[in-house]
Nucleic acid binder design. Structure first.
Length: 474
RNA sequence: GGCGGCAUCGCCAAGCGGCCAAGGCAAUGGAUUGCAAAUCCAUCACCCCCGGUUCGAAUCCGGGUGCCGCCUCCA
C-alpha cells in the first residue's frame, strides 16, 4: 500500500500521514450548529470528512472519529426563543434532520457525536485549568482568554491581532475585553439567555463557542489528536483559538494535521438566505435529484477547492452517477460466458490508480477518472462478448472497493418491484414476444412515468428505477 | 488595510518542468436496436495577458487583469 498524503494547513504543505499511534488515526471534525437545517455547503464539508475517514480506512487505519454537535450558542438560543420552544426541543429537531441527511448522503456514522450541553463540566474544568495557568481574566461576569499570554497565537492562520481590520464592529462584549482579539471562554448569563445557563465555578452562564471543541476533543481523543477538520472559514478565529486554549492548558501540541475544506458557492456567491441562493438537501431532492447525485457532484471537485453549486453541474453529476449505478448492477447479472479480455487485470490496475489518486490529498476528481476508465474498458470487453463470469465478479468487487470511499451506489434502496409493476413488465415482455410493438411502447411509457425505465437487450428486457422527470425548482 | 484561494475545451475538472494537455457532462457523425434506451467507434483545447528563467513551462519567477473568500460565534 502506498503512503497517504494530506495537506496540512499548519505547514501549508502536503505531508505524509503518520498517526501518533501506529495503525490508529484519531480525527475530530467540527459538526453542525443545530439551529436550522444544514445547507448544502455544510453537507459538502461533511461529505469531505467522510471521504477522509473512508480513505484512512482504505489505507488500513483504524479510525476513531468524533464530531461535535453545537447545541448551545447565540443562534440556537435565539432560534428557540423566537419559536418559543425549549432549547433542547429545538436542537433535537435539527439533530434528527442532520442524521437523516447523513444517511441520505451515504455518510458513515462517526464513533461519537458529543453534544456541547452534555459536556459542560469538562469545559469548566478546562477553563479553570487555564485560569490556574494565568491565561484568563474575568470581566463583566465572563471569563476571557488573553491571547497575549500565548506566544504561538496566529501560527495556523498567519494572522495576529495587528492584522485585524481596524474599526470592525464591536458588540457589547468587546468593551469588556482588554484586547479586541481576546475571546470568551465562559459567557456570563444575560437577560436574553432566558433559562439557558449553568451554575458552575466559572459562574452562572454558558460556554463560549471555541471551548467546546477543545474540551470534547481532549476528552474523547486525548490531548493531542491526529487530524482536526473544518471549513476554511473556521481557520480564523475558531481553530486559532482552539489551539491557543488547548495548548496553553496542556503544553502539548493540540492537533497534528489541520484539514480544511473550501467553500461551496451558489450562483458564484457565498450562500446566504438574503441572497436567495441558499439551498438545503430537500431543495435538491425537490429538483428531482437523488441526494447521492449531490454527493457525486461534490466529489467532482477537490475538497480544498472553492466551487460553485449549479443546476448544470448537478445534472452532469446525476448522469455520470447513473452510469456508475447501471454499470454496477449490470455486473451483478448472471450469464457472462465470454472468453476473452482481461477484465480482472483491468480491475486491479484501475483500483491501484484509484487509491493512488486518493493518496494524493484525496484527489477525488482523479479517483473518479479511474472508475470511468474501468467502466469504459469493461464495457468494451462486454460489447465484444468477452466478459467472463469471473471477470465480471472481479470488476464488481473492484467497483465496490472504490465505492467504499465514493459512496455512490444506492445500497439496497432500489427496492423490489411492486406486483402491479411486475405485471406491466410481464405484459410488455409478452407483447414484444408477439411483436406487438405498439402495446410494448405504450407500456414502456407508462412504466417510465411510474419511475421505471425499461431497456431491451438481446437477452430480454431489463429495468431500473429512474426519475420520471426532473422539475425546475420554484 | 492585513491574510488566503482561483483563472486549462460550450459547462465541470486532472495536471506539481519533458511521450500526441486525463476524465465527466453537452455536441456532431457512425455501429447496434422493431423504435428507443444502454453500450461501443470516431470527431471536439496549445492552457487570462505581458515579461523572465530553462535545451524544454499550462506547470518555476516577476508584473498585470479578473473573480471569490477570511479578518463579524457561517462548513
Amino acid at each position: 500500500m502506498t503512503d497517504l498524503y494530506i495537506y496540512n494547513t499548519l505547514s501549508r504543505n502536503r505531508e505524509k500521514f503518520v498517526p501518533l499511534k501506529d495503525g490508529v488515526a484519531t480525527i475530530y471534525t467540527c459538526g453542525p450548529t443545530v439551529y436550522s437545517q444544514a445547507q448544502i455547503g455544510n453537507l459538502r464539508a461533511f461529505v469531505s470528512y467522510d471521504v477522509l475517514v473512508k480513505t484512512l480506512a482504505l489505507f488500513g487505519f483504524k479510525v476513531i472519529h468524533v464530531m461535535n454537535l453545537t447545541d448551545v450558542d447565540d443562534k440556537t438560543i435565539r432560534a428557540s426563543r423566537a419559536e418559543g420552544v425549549e432549547l433542547g426541543d429545538l436542537t433535537q429537531r435539527y439533530i434528527d434532520i442532520f442524521f437523516r441527511d447523513l444517511d441520505k448522503l451515504n455518510i458513515r456514522r462517526a464513533s461519537e457525536y458529543p453534544r456541547a450541553t452534555a459536556h459542560i463540566p469538562a469545559m469548566v474544568a478546562l477553563v479553570s485549568k487555564l485560569k490556574d495557568r494565568g491565561h484568563t481574566y474575568e470581566s463583566g461576569g465572563s471569563t476571557y482568554f488573553r491571547i497575549s499570554s500565548f506566544s504561538g497565537y496566529g501560527k495556523l492562520s498567519g494572522m495576529d491581532s495587528a492584522g485585524l481590520k481596524p474599526g470592525a464592529r464591536l458588540d457589547k462584549d468587546e468593551y469588556e475585553k482588554e484586547d479586541a482579539s481576546d475571546f470568551v471562554l465562559w459567557k456570563g448569563w444575560k437577560e436574553e439567555d432566558g433559562d439557558v445557563f449553568w451554575e458552575t465555578e466559572a459562574g452562572k452562564g454558558r460556554p463560549g463557542w471555541h471551548i467546546e471543541c477543545s474540551a470534547m476533543s481532549m476528552q474523547y481523543l486525548g490531548e493531542t489528536v491526529d487530524i482536526h477538520g473544518g471549513g476554511i472559514d473556521l481557520i480564523f478565529p475558531h481553530h486559532e483559538n482552539e489551539i491557543a486554549q488547548s495548548e496553553a492548558a496542556t503544553g502539548k501540541k493540540f492537533v497534528r494535521y489541520w484539514v480544511h475544506n473550501g467553500w461551496l458557492l451558489s450562483d458564484g456567491r457565498k450562500m446566504s438566505k438574503s441572497l436567495g441562493n441558499y439551498h438545503v438537501l430537500a431543495d435538491v431532492e425537490k429538483m428531482g435529484f437523488n441526494p447521492l447525485d449531490l454527493r457525486y457532484f461534490f466529489l467532482t471537485n477537490h475538497y480544498r477547492q472553492q466551487f460553485n453549486f449549479t443546476r448544470e453541474g448537478l445534472d452532469a453529476a446525476a448522469k455520470a452517477r447513473q452510469r456508475v449505478v447501471d454499470f454496477h448492477s449490470r455486473l451483478g447479472e448472471t450469464g457472462w460466458a465470454g472468453g476473452a479480455g482481461d477484465a480482472g487485470g483491468e480491475a486491479g490496475k484501475r483500483l491501484a490508480e484509484f487509491s493512488e489518486a486518493l493518496s494524493d490529498d484525496l484527489n477525488t476528481p482523479k479517483a473518479l477518472v479511474a472508475l470511468h476508465m474501468l467502466m469504459a474498458a469493461v464495457n468494451r470487453i462486454e460489447n465484444r462478448g468477452g466478459l467472463t463470469a469471473s471477470g465480471a465478479a472481479a470488476v464488481k468487487k473492484a467497483v465496490e472497493s472504490m465505492d467504499a470511499v465514493l459512496g455512490l451506489l444506492p445500497g439496497g434502496r432500489e427496492g423490489a418491484l411492486a406486483p402491479e409493476e411486475q405485471e406491466l413488465l410481464d405484459l410488455r415482455r409478452d407483447a414484444r414476444a408477439r411483436k406487438d410493438f405498439k402495446l410494448s411502447d405504450t407500456l414502456r411509457d407508462r412504466l417510465l412515468k411510474m419511475g421505471i425505465a425499461v431497456e431491451d437487450t438481446p437477452s430480454g428486457q431489463r429495468w431500473k428505477r429512474a426519475d420520471a422527470g426532473k422539475q425546475q425548482i420554484g
